[in-house]
């Protein structure tokens, strides 16, 4: 399987791995098309999510992430293809599917003038799970907040409350739409830990985000959406390797002055692409190449010339680079 071909099969999750024989998918989406009148927002999208897998959905605004999420949750009519959650059609089997899914939706606020405990009681009644919130609030560090008004909670607490509520009942899939937007770094890390804990308990997760470090930290596999279509689907690591482009190596020739003349020529002789340098730093030369193979060649050459290993710096491309290349011009043109 090449990395740039969308693979619809669940990969082993980073959490406690499901049995080697392929686990029954929690979510199965085949050829999903969602349209609003003439406008096709999502076209022929297919993917599966295994129990305990955190599946990421990324793409520029307007690429169709929320439409996919809403179709999975049964909130959006489907123009073509099929969606199944634990084998149920989310539109026709609303009763069964809403019990299996906990949803945290982008921009969906809590009711005003309510206390944390009241909202928990309400969710317990709706999901017929009396007492379920006590342990959840405890594990999310909100146990002493039952009497607090929701308006008094910090953004991070509110997000954790949403995560806790999304798990009340016998939930097999948690949908997290723009999970940590607006949280500070500390709160983000706390929320991430909660997500991974949840995955470790075997709950499947569908996550959308604009923060690629978040997707990389949480997701077993990621689908990249562009203009309603999946342009790549794989693990973040393989997407990075296949699409992020070459690494950049910077050699400080200043360190070689008076030591070994001709280092610059020998570096050029390696056949790597040399980037146009800056006149401000004439002694810094930059090459692009692969990591680790080309990097090792540079380090060996410099070692032969008697230069310290610190003379070479490298910048390896990240998952975000891969993402930006994959969504390409579409992002720049459409985002404006």
């Amino acid at each position: 399987m090449t990395a740039n071909q969308p693979s619809a099969e669940p990969a082993p999750s980073p959490g406690p791995s499901p049995s080697p024989s392929r686990p029954e998918a929690v979510v199965r989406v085949e050829g999903l098309t969602v349209a609003y009148g003439e406008f096709v927002a999502v076209r022929e999208v297919s993917f599966r999510i295994a129990p305990g897998e955190v599946f990421g959905l990324v793409g520029p605004n307007g690429a169709g992430k929320t439409s996919v999420v809403e179709a999975v949750g049964g909130l959006r009519p489907v123009r073509g293809g099929t969606v199944a959650v634990c084998g149920h059609d989310p539109r026709r089997d609303r009763d069964a599917v809403t019990r299996l899914i906990g949803m945290q939706l982008q921009e969906s606020q809590f009711p005003s003038r309510a206390r944390v405990g009241e909202l928990c009681d309400l969710y317990e009644a709706i999901y017929r799970a009396p007492g379920a919130s006590a342990a959840l609030l405890d594990s999310f560090g909100l146990a002493d907040r039952r009497r607090s008004m929701i308006a008094e909670l910090s953004g991070g607490m509110r997000q954790r409350l949403a995560l806790a509520l999304a798990q009340i009942g016998d939930v097999r899939l948690v949908v997290l739409d723009e999970l940590t937007t607006g949280l500070d770094p500390h709160q983000r890390r706390e929320t991430w830990r909660s997500v991974l804990d949840l995955a470790a308990r075997g709950v499947a997760m569908l996550l959308t985000s604009h923060a690629m470090d978040e997707v990389e930290a949480l997701c077993g596999r990621v689908a990249v959406l562009r203009a309603g279509e999946i342009v790549a689907l794989d693990t973040p690591a393989r997407l990075t390797a296949a699409h992020a482009g070459p690494s950049t190596f910077t050699v400080d020739l200043g360190a070689s002055d008076g030591l070994s003349p001709g280092v610059e020529e020998r570096l050029d002789g390696l056949g790597l692409t040399r980037l146009p340098g800056s006149p401000d730093t004439p002694r810094l030369v930059e090459f692009t190449g692969s990591f680790p193979a080309d990097y090792d060649r540079i380090v060996r050459l410099l070692a032969d010339a008697g230069l310290p290993p610190s003379a070479v710096g490298r910048r390896t491309p990240t998952f975000e680079d891969a993402y930006l290349r994959l969504v390409g011009d579409a992002a720049g043109n459409k985002g404006a």
Binding site: G73, G74, R94, R99, M103, S108, Q109, I126, Y127
Partner: peptide, 17 residues
């Protein structure tokens, strides 16, 4: 209007109720 505008209704539509 509050429930609709702040997407509270949408949140509850995703539940069994």
């Amino acid at each position: 209007a509050e429930y609709r505008d702040r997407k509270v209704l949408k949140r509850f539509r995703a539940t069994p109720v």
